[in-house]
Amino acid sequence: MKPDLPTGLPHLVGVLGGGRMGAGIAHAFLIKGADVLVVERDDVSAEGARERVESAALKSIERGAVDANFDELASRLTVSTDYDAFTGRQLVVEAVPEDWDLKVTALRGIEERLGEDGFIASNTSSLSVNGLARELKRPENFLGLHFFNPVPASTLIEVVLGERTSPELAAAAKTWVEALGKTAVVVNDAPGFASSRLGVAIALEAMRMVEEGVASAEDIDNAMVLGYKHPTGPLKTTDIVGLDVRLGIAEYLQSTLGDRFAPPQILRDKVARGELGRKTGKGFFEWPTQE
Rank of each mutant, 00 (worst) to 15 (best):
A223N: 07
I249A: 03
R208F: 03
V187E: 08
I249M: 08
E251W: 04
D221Y: 07
N222L: 15
D219G: 10
P234N: 10
S196Y: 01
G248C: 09
S216E: 10
P234G: 04
D221C: 08
S196K: 00
L253N: 02
A223V: 13
G199M: 04
P231Y: 00
G213T: 08
D239S: 04
D219V: 13
T232S: 13
P191K: 06
V210F: 05
I202Y: 11
Y228V: 14
A250I: 12
N188H: 15
K236H: 13
I202N: 04
S195P: 05
E218R: 14
P234T: 09
K182Q: 10
G192N: 00
M209C: 12
P231G: 15
G199L: 01
V185C: 10
G233T: 03
E212R: 13
R197C: 09
V214K: 03
E205I: 06
E205T: 11
E205Q: 14
P234R: 11
T237G: 13
N188R: 15
T237P: 02
E251F: 03
D189A: 07
L204R: 05
E212T: 09
D239N: 08
I202S: 06
E212N: 12
L198F: 14
T183D: 15
K182I: 12
V200H: 00
G199E: 00
A206N: 02
G242D: 03
T232A: 13
